[in-house]
C-alpha cells in the first residue's frame, strides 16, 4: 500500500485519503451492525460486553488508601461513641442555626434563605458584629442547637461554609463554589416543607465517614416520604456536590425527576476537633503539599 503522505500530487493525495477514510468508516459501520445483529439474537452477549467494558477513570484507579472503612469492629466502636452519637444513638432531633460572616451582602442572604429551605428546623439569625464565633457557640449551646452553619463571603459572593457540630464539635470548613440558586435553574419545582430523604454517595475513608455522619446529623431521622423530596450529597474526587430533587411517578415503572435547587459544591479544607477555635487542634487540614497525585483522594 502506498503511503499517502508521500504522494506529491495534492489532488491524488486528497482523493486517496478520502477513499481510505470512507473505507475505514464503512468497516466500522459493518462491524457494529454485525455486532448488533448478533447481540439481538443473543442478548446475554450484550450484557457480558457491557459489564466487561469499564473505562478507566480517576476514581476507579485511585491510589490505595488504608483508611477506607470496611467491616471493622474497632472503627464501628469508634463511630458508635463519637461526637455524633447523640444524633445516631440517643435520637436527638437536629436544630440548626444559620448565620453569616459580619456585614453580609445580599448574595449571602439569598443563599442563606435557600439553606433554611433545605434543612428542616433551621433558623436564620442575623449576625451582629459585636459577637465573636465563640460567643455564638455558647449562645447556641444554651438554646439547644445541634449545629451552626456560617456562610462566609468574599467580594460579595458566598465562598466558604463552616459547619460546627454542638456541643462538642467537630468543626468542618468547606470551600463553597458553583452556586446556582433555585430561581436560576430552568424548570425547577417548588419546594414543600416536607422532611427530605438523604442520599450520601462515596464517603468511604475514615475522614469521609466523619464528614458523611456530620451531614447526616443535619437532617431529621425519619423523612416524610409523601413529600418525595431527596437531598443528595455526592462525593466525587473530594468535591461534594449538593443537589435536591423531587421524584414523580409517571406510571408503575417510570419515575421522573424534578430538580428543586439550589446546586452548590463543597470541598473540605479542614476538620477541627472541638467547636470553632482558631488556635484549636486540627484533626485534618488540606495542604497543597498533599496533592502528590491526581489519583489521591481523602474522602
Amino acid at each position: 500500500m502506498v503511503e499517502i503522505n508521500t504522494i506529491k500530487n495534492k489532488l491524488k493525495r486528497e482523493e486517496l485519503y478520502q477513499k481510505q477514510k470512507s473505507a475505514k468508516a464503512k468497516e466500522k459501520r459493518d462491524r457494529r451492525t454485525a455486532l448488533q445483529k448478533e447481540e439481538a439474537s443473543n442478548p446475554e452477549k450484550k450484557e457480558k460486553r457491557l459489564v466487561e467494558n469499564v473505562p478507566n477513570t480517576l476514581e476507579n484507579t485511585r491510589e490505595f488508601d488504608e483508611t477506607i472503612v470496611g467491616d471493622d469492629e474497632e472503627v464501628a466502636a469508634d463511630e458508635a461513641t463519637d461526637e455524633f452519637s447523640q444524633y445516631f444513638q440517643s435520637g436527638v432531633a437536629p436544630k440548626i442555626l444559620i448565620t453569616t460572616s459580619k456585614g453580609p451582602s445580599s448574595a449571602v442572604y439569598e443563599f442563606a434563605t435557600e439553606l433554611v429551605d433545605i434543612f428542616p428546623n433551621s433558623h436564620f439569625v442575623k449576625r451582629k458584629p459585636q459577637f465573636e464565633m465563640r460567643h455564638i457557640v455558647e449562645f447556641s449551646k444554651n438554646r439547644d442547637f445541634t449545629d451552626i452553619m456560617v456562610i462566609n463571603e468574599d467580594r460579595k459572593e458566598p465562598n466558604a461554609l463552616t459547619l460546627i457540630h454542638l456541643p462538642n464539635g467537630p468543626t468542618a470548613h468547606f470551600k463553597l463554589s458553583s452556586i446556582s440558586l433555585s430561581k436560576e435553574i430552568e424548570g425547577h419545582g417548588r419546594t414543600s416543607s416536607h422532611k427530605p430523604e438523604l442520599i450520601l454517595n462515596n464517603f468511604n475513608t475514615r475522614l469521609g465517614h466523619t464528614i458523611g455522619r456530620m451531614f447526616t446529623a443535619l437532617f431529621p431521622h425519619v423523612p416524610e416520604f409523601q413529600g418525595r423530596q431527596v437531598a443528595t450529597l455526592h462525593n466525587q474526587r473530594d468535591f461534594i456536590f449538593f443537589r435536591r430533587h423531587r421524584y414523580m411517578f409517571k406510571n408503575a415503572k417510570r419515575v421522573n425527576l424534578q430538580e428543586l435547587g439550589p446546586r452548590f459544591t463543597l470541598k473540605l479544607k479542614w476538620l477541627q476537633k472541638g467547636t470553632f477555635d482558631r488556635k484549636g487542634e486540627y484533626e485534618w487540614m488540606f495542604k497543597p503539599e498533599m496533592e502528590t497525585s491526581r489519583r489521591r483522594f481523602f474522602l
Binding site: 487542634e281 486540627y282 484533626e283 485534618w284 487540614m285 495542604k287 481523602f298
Partner: peptide, 9 residues
C-alpha cells in the same frame, strides 16, 4: 518534618 495531615499530639 513532612507528611502530617493532623496535629501531632
Amino acid at each position: 518534618f513532612k507528611g502530617f495531615t493532623g496535629v501531632a499530639t
